[in-house]
Amino acid sequence: MPELPEVETTRRGIAPHCEGQTITGVTVRNGSLRWPVPADLGDRLRGQIIRSIDRRAKYLFLNVEHGTVIVHLGMSGSLRIIADETPPMPHDHIDLTLGSGTILRFNDPRRFGCWLWADSVDDHPLIRQLGPEPLMPEFNGALLFQLSRGKNTPVKSFIMDNHVVVGVGNIYANEALFKAGIHPRRKAARISRDRYHRLAGAIRETLSAAILMGGTTLRDFVNSDGKPGYFAQSLLVYGRGGAPCKECGTPLKEIRMNNRATVYCPRCQR
């Protein structure tokens, strides 16, 4: 599933080709996504200018003159810029034809993504309850410490809660907890303020590095593939269960938490 760095890479990849462009056509080949694509989406969008493309958590906002399209890539979705004569492939569900003669095309084999209309994004039920962005100043160790009081949930589940902080998916939670030296099963309420400061810094560092590495593949958004090379960064623990820890050499342990792979070092993480 695309995580926050991959969604941000997508935003950076498509924005220069879309912002300032007039939408001249809308084609919905299959509107049966996670939620039905609004039947009047084409009527709403034709003739409008894309003012900006923003991101909140793993949602992309296509901001036009009057309203916003909320896009989520789901588990398998991708957006790419293509020439207008490129024929659609299987699972190419939505096209926005732009005044430049190019197309913003949405492909989603599993159809868990979404395209929804919002007159006001901040009031939309998918958006209004989201926690802070992990790369913004308001996200810090003091906030994590405050929100964790009385929480008996494991810290890994705690930082993956979008009400606490958005965009810390499974892979990045594993990596950040390793960098902070915190065991993923430790109860959130039993972690000190100082350790939460380290964890907040590790989350920012991990996500920032992944975004930078994703940025090396921006050219992929203008070819027929459109895949940004997810998770190309060098991972310290995720996917390395049984391999030696890169810090101490101890074999990494892999367990399941909430049906997700969790890898940690039993020596470095307490």
Rank of each mutant, 00 (worst) to 15 (best):
M1G: 10
P16Y: 15
P16W: 14
G20D: 03
G25H: 06
V28H: 06
R29E: 09
G31M: 02
L33E: 05
L33Y: 08
W35L: 07
L41K: 06
L41C: 11
L41T: 05
G42C: 04
R46D: 00
R46G: 01
S52W: 01
D54F: 00
R56F: 05
N63P: 00
V71P: 06
L73G: 02
L73Y: 03
S76H: 05
S78L: 15
R80G: 04
A83T: 09
D84Q: 08
H91M: 07
D92C: 06
G99D: 09
G99M: 06
S100F: 07
D108H: 09
P109A: 10
C114G: 11
W117I: 00
S120N: 15
V121N: 05
D122Y: 01
H124W: 04
L126Y: 14
I127M: 10
E133T: 06
E133R: 11
M136F: 03
F139T: 01
A142F: 04
F145R: 08
L147N: 09
K151S: 14
T153D: 11
V155C: 09
K156M: 08
F158H: 05
M160L: 03
V164D: 08
V165D: 07
E175H: 08
A176K: 08
F178W: 12
K179W: 08
K187C: 03
R193P: 09
R193T: 01
R195E: 15
Y196G: 02
R198Q: 15
R198E: 13
G201E: 12
G201S: 12
I203H: 06
I203Y: 07
T206E: 09
S208Y: 10
A209I: 14
M213I: 12
L218A: 05
R219S: 15
D225F: 04
K227T: 14
Y230I: 11
Y230P: 10
Y230D: 06
L236E: 13
G241D: 09
G242W: 10
G249Q: 10
L252C: 09
L252T: 03
I255G: 08
I255Q: 07
T262G: 00
V263A: 11
P266Q: 05
